[in-house]
Design a protein around this nucleic acid. Structure first.
Lengths: 125, 125
DNA sequence: CTTATTTTTGCAACAATGTTGCATTAAGTA
DNA sequence: TACTTAATGCAACATTGTTGCAAAAATAAG
């Protein structure tokens, strides 16, 4: 099994995501890092962080991909909460306390879930 | 207000999507049309169809975008049902009868919803 | 501290997906 | 039939993500 190393890029990117209130996209991270590392490295670090369950990947209703770190990332690894995507300020937020409920026909085997709700967030309304 | 026209491309694309059991991606539609029209036209037609509420756009957990027409497209324009994305056969299906329930804090105004569940579909299990 | 090993990085190149401007074509209407 | 305007095709561009490979950096061992 491959082991992972703690590099500057990884630390910086994880810090950025952890300290952000909202989910961050690759390009947002890139401009925040301001040339610290290559574009490709950011992709690779993000993939590693997701694999190691340190952050989770959020796909919003537009198809845009963002990355977020939430409380459950540090504990239960349960990322099946709702994400809210604000149409005004474009922010994506984890609503950790909102657990959606649904019932699928028995024959479906669920392994992953992505629940995104779009609208206007409290700050913008 | 701009009005819309019924062109060959639009008719063909809508037919394709309507007659398909599963949601279709831009590239799937493109190869099905087999050169009937330009790549760009497909993008533009798909956007129009979504605006006119004739089909709906589904974003799966990978960030891939697909288009589907379901019963509710023809009636209530309620696209807030669950979509199931099979990790094996890569198909995306509307589960029209499954209505998820959730409660957001009052301050959030909801206008759109995208619920996608990944796993293994009945055919593949 | 130095060396050895293996992961990460940077760079370049590529692939997929989506957008825009503009001249031409075609749909709907009078 | 002719007119008006939406829709198309083409070319070019933008964004997002991936891959191969040599060079650099991080851990482990001596």
């Amino acid at each position: 099994m491959k082991q992972t190393r703690n590099t500057t890029a990884k630390t910086e990117i994880l810090d950025l995501i952890s300290q952000s209130e909202v989910a961050l996209s690759h390009s947002e991270i890139q401009s925040a890092l301001d040339g610290l590392c290559d574009r490709v490295t950011i992709y690779r670090v993000l993939n590693r962080l997701v694999e190691e369950d340190l952050v989770h990947k959020v796909v919003n209703t537009d198809g845009g991909v963002k990355y977020a770190s939430c409380h459950s990332c540090a504990t239960t690894h349960n990322h099946n909460h709702i994400h809210f995507s604000c149409q005004k300020c474009k922010s994506v937020t984890c609503l950790e306390n909102v657990e959606p409920s649904f019932k699928l026909p028995k024959k479906y085997k669920v392994s992953e879930v992505n629940f995104t709700v779009s609208g206007i967030c409290p700050k913008c309304s």
